[in-house]
């Protein structure tokens, strides 16, 4: 039983115009120091409830808050206001190319990342070989990740991240993974995961793919939900808006 429940979620970032304040400045100016941070209201009073079987597509212009919403669902950004309630184990394919230990070998990095995803040495034993095989990196797994090319890194990252069987799958902007052959393979693997996961949230600018994969959609505009409901209806409205008034909907705040 998987569930994501967001109730009146607000998320505000405070961005500093200049550099960070130092402790010395803070101690000297102390109480007189007025906070020069600029507030950015990234998500505005959103409520979303997702249950088993829901496949949600998230669309909207660049900077609308799609990725932020996904990270909030994954628990990385805590909401400023409102409540987040998630049941079921999550796998998020967002920034998977980050977080390698450059001095460790590919094999070791598979272990760290897998432990980070909640594996234990016992459960990993049966999987590590298939992760390595899927990455097709062969002997390169014995050398430090520092020497990998960007494509090799993303291969390794995807192979590990997709080795779990999550109940909730969060995918940001279906990644262009490696070369053509690997892309085809990755797409297949992703489709498998999507069909197994009981709940899926995906961000994409590929409206065709959204229509095929999802049964629900939300359109986010400047941090707020502009339209939600049946995937075809939302995608059509978004397409109309984007073609009729190009530039208008992308004017970021």
């Amino acid at each position: 039983m998987a569930k994501i429940e967001l109730n009146n979620i607000d998320l505000t970032f405070s961005i500093r115009q200049t550099r960070k304040i130092t402790l010395k400045e803070w101690l000297v100016q102390g109480i007189f120091w007025n906070n020069p941070a600029k507030k950015i209201h990234a998500l505005k009073t959103m409520s979303i409830t997702l249950q088993d079987g829901d496949r949600l597509g998230v669309i909207g212009h660049n900077g609308a808050g799609k990725s932020t919403l996904l990270k909030l669902m994954a628990g990385i950004y805590p909401p400023t206001n409102g409540s987040r309630n998630v049941e079921g184990n999550i796998c998020s394919l967002c920034v998977i190319s980050l977080g390698f230990e450059p001095d460790a070998s590919g094999w070791d990095n598979i272990r760290y990342r897998a432990y980070l995803q909640g594996e234990t040495p016992a459960t990993l034993k049966g999987k590590i070989q298939s992760i390595a095989e899927f990455s097709e990196l062969g002997d390169f797994l014995n050398i430090p990740v520092r020497y990998y090319s960007a494509g090799m890194l993303i291969r390794l990252a995807f192979s590990i991240a997709s080795a779990v069987e999550p109940e909730i799958l969060l995918i940001d902007e279906v990644l262009a993974v490696g070369d053509l052959a690997f892309q085809i393979k990755a797409r297949k693997r992703m489709e498998q995961m999507m069909s197994k996961a009981s709940l899926l949230v995906t961000i994409s600018h590929d409206l065709q793919a959204i229509c095929e994969l999802c049964n629900r959609a939300i359109w986010i505009d400047h941090g707020a939900i502009r339209l939600e409901g049946d995937v075809r209806k939302v995608v059509e409205a978004y397409r109309q808006c984007a073609t009729n008034s190009p530039g208008l909907h992308t004017a970021a705040a």
Binding site: E101, D103, A104, D108, R111, Y112, Y115, G118, T120, P121
Partner: peptide, 17 residues
Amino acid sequence: WKFRYFWLSLVKLDLKT
């Protein structure tokens, strides 16, 4: 505790490197 394998293996790595 649940994620002990994660941080313990990183400690080991720190020593090794």
